[in-house]
């Protein structure tokens, strides 16, 4: 494998080169099955709980950016989708679509970073696939990850939000918009610097701390479309509304500056390590305190509440004391952000 410095079509052939790639790269970092057998399908044994199952594809451009890369993103994205449903992420699969000529050293960096992130999150990557396409038929590398999580029945309400009641508090675990702005400014076409890094992180341990600290009614990770997309989605056709307070929402000075300059609303910019929680009012302070002890939650705070005042609408109390409606971003703000 050493002599092939780049990915060749043969690496996706299913023949000897594919086998080598699996043995020398993927299994090296993701680990071999416990029983040693490399089968067509991994066999799992659920233990009386519910299974949460999700999938996501990653096409981020550029592949490497400050704070992460497409591999870390692919693990975090799927882990986070599972844990905001209240599940404990357990198993991932990884499918790679690679452009012919992609440097092997870069693939190794990506695979290493996936393995590192999976180990931090405590998930196993148990199945995978690689396809190689002709030059210019895909851009460098695309990754799909699917994930299975174990969901205790008492948390089954979380993903549906059926326990949400007026008065509930809304929590966010830190500063918004870092991922979107980092990836955008890492692109060659834009000669603007953003001295921040992507917030890309697996949130399952943080979320577990929060779940143990108090009564959570709903969670969602604020990825594409940002916080604005998830709050508008949450109130859509519901009997409750949301009030957020602009002066409580954590935004870095440089985030505010860049967004002002480019005309972006930071609430609409993508994050990859931020979770919005709706929690019982009586437990909110306890939950925030527990989250603040975790590295991914040290800037956690309450930013708003559920209200019965304007059902179906998310309202922002603006910094100057006005009010406005929060809406979903229209169209594609930044293509290929994850």
């Amino acid at each position: 494998m050493e002599k092939n410095k780049t990915i060749l079509l043969g690496h996706g052939s299913g023949g000897r080169m594919s086998h080598e790639l699996t043995e020398q790269l993927f299994l090296k970092y993701f680990g071999r099955p416990d029983d040693g057998f490399l089968t067509d399908a991994a066999l799992l044994e659920p233990e009386g709980n519910l299974l949460a199952f999700t999938t996501d594809s990653f096409v981020v451009d550029p592949v490497f950016f400050p704070g992460g890369d497409i591999g870390k993103l692919a693990v975090c994205g799927t882990v986070n989708d599972l844990c905001v449903a209240g599940a404990s992420p357990a198993y991932l699969t990884a499918g790679f679509i690679i452009e012919e000529g992609f440097p092997l050293s870069q693939l190794e960096t990506i695979v290493k970073s996936m393995a590192l992130c999976a180990s931090e999150a405590g998930v196993k990557i148990i199945a995978g696939d690689t396809k190689v396409v002709h030059k210019h038929k895909c851009d460098k590398i695309f990754i799909n990850t699917s994930g299975i999580g174990i969901l205790e029945r008492r948390y089954a309400h979380l993903s549906k939000g059926t326990h949400i009641t007026p008065g509930d508090k809304i929590i966010i675990n830190g500063f918004l918009a870092d991922h979107g702005l980092t990836v955008m400014t890492a692109r060659e076409a834009l000669s603007i610097r953003y001295n921040g890094t992507s917030d890309c992180a697996p949130l399952n341990h943080l979320i577990r701390c929060a779940m143990d600290a108090g009564d959570i009614h709903f969670m969602r990770d604020a990825t594409r479309g940002g916080l604005a997309a998830i709050v508008t989605e949450l109130v859509d056709r519901k009997t409750f509304g949301i009030e957020l307070h602009e002066n409580k929402i954590p935004l870095r000075e440089n985030t505010k500056g860049l967004c002002e300059m480019l005309g972006f609303d930071p609430l609409q910019i993508a994050n990859e390590g931020k979770v919005m929680m709706v929690v019982a009012s009586s437990d909110a302070e306890k939950i925030v305190a527990a989250m603040q002890k975790h590295p991914y939650g040290k800037d956690s705070c309450i930013i708003g509440e559920i209200t019965d005042q304007h059902p179906g609408t998310a309202v922002l109390n603006t910094i100057i004391g006005g009010k406005r409606i929060i809406d979903m971003p229209a169209g594609e703000l930044l293509p290929r952000i994850c």
């Binding site: 609303d265 603006t318 910094i319 100057i320 004391g321 006005g322 009010k323 406005r324």
Partner: peptide, 9 residues
């Protein structure tokens, strides 16, 4: 004007 809710004021 609309982003900051000025008409309200």
């Amino acid at each position: 004007i609309h982003r900051f809710g000025i008409p309200e004021l």
